Amino acid sequence: MTLSVSHVSWSAGGTEILRDISLTVETGEFLGIIGPNGSGKTSLMSLFAGLRKPRSGVVLLDGAPIGSLSRRDVAQRLALVEQQADTGERITARQAVEIGRTPYLGPLLPWSPDDDRIVDAALDNVDMTHLAGRSWHTLSGGERQRLHIARAIAQQPEILLLDEPTNHLDIGHQISLLDLVQRQELTVVAALHDLNHAAMYCDRIAVMQVGCLVALGRPRDVLTEERIRDVFGVDAEIDVDGGGLCHLRFRTQRSHARVTAVRPANLSATGGR
Rank of each mutant, 00 (worst) to 15 (best):
A257E: 15
R183N: 12
Y104M: 11
R71K: 14
G233V: 11
D62Q: 13
A257N: 11
T129W: 04
G244L: 06
G211Y: 05
V214G: 04
T42H: 07
R220C: 01
L61I: 08
L248G: 05
E89W: 12
R94M: 13
V207K: 06
R134Y: 07
D116N: 12
T27M: 07
E98N: 03
D230F: 03
R55N: 15
T27F: 07
R220P: 00
D239L: 14
T92F: 08
G57R: 00
L60V: 08
V97P: 00
T92V: 06
G32V: 02
G106V: 06
I34Q: 02
A152M: 07
A236S: 12
R151G: 10
K53C: 12
L169A: 09
V97S: 01
D241Q: 05
S135K: 08
P219A: 14
R227G: 03
L60S: 08
G38A: 11
H137Y: 10
V234T: 14
I238A: 04
A191W: 04
V210C: 06
V74H: 01
G50K: 01
H7P: 01
T138E: 14
S22K: 06
E82F: 05
H256S: 14
R258K: 15
H130T: 12
W136V: 06
Q156C: 11
N37R: 08
D203E: 13
R90Q: 13
G88T: 14
R229C: 11
N196R: 10
N125Y: 11
G67T: 06
L195S: 06
R273G: 08
L162P: 02
L192R: 01
E98C: 08
A206L: 14
G106N: 09
T102R: 11
A96L: 14
V59E: 06
G100M: 10
R258C: 03
L180E: 09
G40A: 07
L31I: 09
R55C: 05
L186T: 03
A132R: 15
R151L: 10
V58S: 12
H130G: 03
R220S: 13
H137C: 03
D239N: 13
G38S: 05
Q253R: 15
D86M: 09
L105I: 04
S135N: 12
A265P: 11
I91Y: 04
E158Q: 11
H193W: 05
S135E: 13
T252K: 12
I33E: 00
